[in-house]
């Protein structure tokens, strides 16, 4: 009787151990998000060297940069859509501004 009890106990412990062993999934957490934003921001600064004289030039440069760096983007200049390659609802965005003829022009780029 005692031996049967021990056997059941051993089997139960073994099943529990195997279950724990199989259900454990090692995870290696690391955060590499944000590098696209960093690259985009460092690239957008380059527009300042080109001294865009009006909003159309600014739109062109912003769209050129966004299309070359990002896979999915929407570019808004002063709140109006300048260019996009997707109709999806993109949540992440980068907002910056340029001063053209003394007026700040806001550029907002949504990215995936």
């Amino acid at each position: 009787m005692r031996s049967n009890f021990l056997l059941i106990l051993e089997v139960t412990i073994a099943i529990l151990f195997i279950y724990l062993l199989l259900s454990y999934k090692p995870n290696f957490y690391y955060d590499i998000r944000g590098f696209r934003e960093e690259d985009l921001l460092s690239s957008l600064i380059s527009i300042n060297y080109l001294y865009p004289s009006n909003v159309t030039y600014l739109e062109d440069y912003s769209c050129q940069i966004a299309s070359n760096i990002l896979d999915y983007y929407k570019v808004f200049v002063n709140g109006s859509l300048a260019c996009n390659n997707t109709d999806e609802d993109l949540r992440n965005s980068i907002r910056t501004f340029y001063i053209i003829n003394g007026t700040p022009i806001f550029v907002e780029i949504f990215l995936k």
Binding site: S42, S43, S46, I65, I69
Partner: peptide, 14 residues
């Protein structure tokens, strides 16, 4: 892939 657009000598380079 990592991409950046930079200004050099009057134009933008990828």
């Amino acid at each position: 892939e990592f991409r950046r657009v930079c200004y050099y000598n009057g134009s933008l380079y990828l």
